[in-house]
Every structure is written in structure tokens, then in C-alpha cells.
Design a protein around this nucleic acid. Structure first.
Length: 104
DNA sequence: AGTCGAGCGCGCA
DNA sequence: TGCGCGCTCGACT
């Protein structure tokens, strides 16, 4: 099981209307290389089934996802998050409200 | 407070 | 084999 696979699984485990952070994922997977998570998400084999946009930075920002999207725009992702019932303020998300913890 | 540098693990050249 | 990244944290300013 590669790290990416675990990440995808966790992504899908996030209930509707909730999100998670790289840090939480890292802790859940017990790794310290949070960048690897983002790296894995970037590959995202199943954008339809793997809501990678639900994974954000620990400070509530969307993350690099915003700036360097491959041919797409952050606004679109925000819209998608909004569709889930997540409210975004000035490009940020209220973690305390929407952050889903994997317990573990 | 805000900024800078190091560290981690996987992917790609 | 080596470097960079959709990050985070600790140390210094």
C-alpha cells in the first residue's frame, strides 16, 4: 500500500460537508513528510472519487492548490467545496468548523 | 507578529 | 542518483 493509496482512502472517508488538513493526514498515516501528501494528491488518479480539494493547509488556506493548479482555478474548487456546504472566507476555511479528524 | 531555513517522504528526470 | 514539491515547525528578527 503506497502512501498515495492511503491518502485517497482517507479522502473518501471524509464525510460530506467536512474537510481535512495535510497535517491531520500526516499524523493519521504516521509520516512527517507532509509534502509527500500534497505530492500524492497532485497525481490524484480519480478526481471524481477523490476529493483532493478537501485537503487543505493546517492554517485554513487552500494551499498551493490555489496557485499552481494545472490548467484550472481555485475558484472552481471553492465552488465545489461550497457545494458540500463548506463556507469559505477570503480563500480560507474555518478549520474548527469543518475539519474532520480521522481519530485513528 | 512575520520571515527564514531545515526536514521529511515520494515522484519524476 | 539527485532534486523538487499542493507542507509544517522551530528559531530568529
Amino acid at each position: 500500500m503506497t502512501l498515495a493509496e492511503s491518502i485517497y482512502k482517507l479522502c473518501k472517508q471524509i464525510p460530506k460537508g467536512k474537510i481535512s488538513t495535510y497535517k491531520e493526514l500526516g499524523k493519521t498515516l504516521n509520516i512527517k513528510a507532509y509534502q509527500a501528501i500534497g505530492r500524492a494528491l497532485k497525481k490524484n488518479p480519480d478526481p471524481e472519487n477523490t476529493p483532493c480539494f478537501k485537503i487543505i493547509k493546517s492554517n485554513g488556506e487552500i494551499g498551493g492548490y490555489a496557485g499552481k493548479i494545472t490548467g484550472k482555478k481555485i475558484e472552481e474548487k471553492i465552488k465545489r467545496l461550497k457545494s458540500e456546504g463548506i463556507e469559505i472566507k477570503q480563500g480560507k476555511i474555518e478549520l474548527s468548523k469543518y475539519l474532520h479528524r480521522f481519530d485513528n
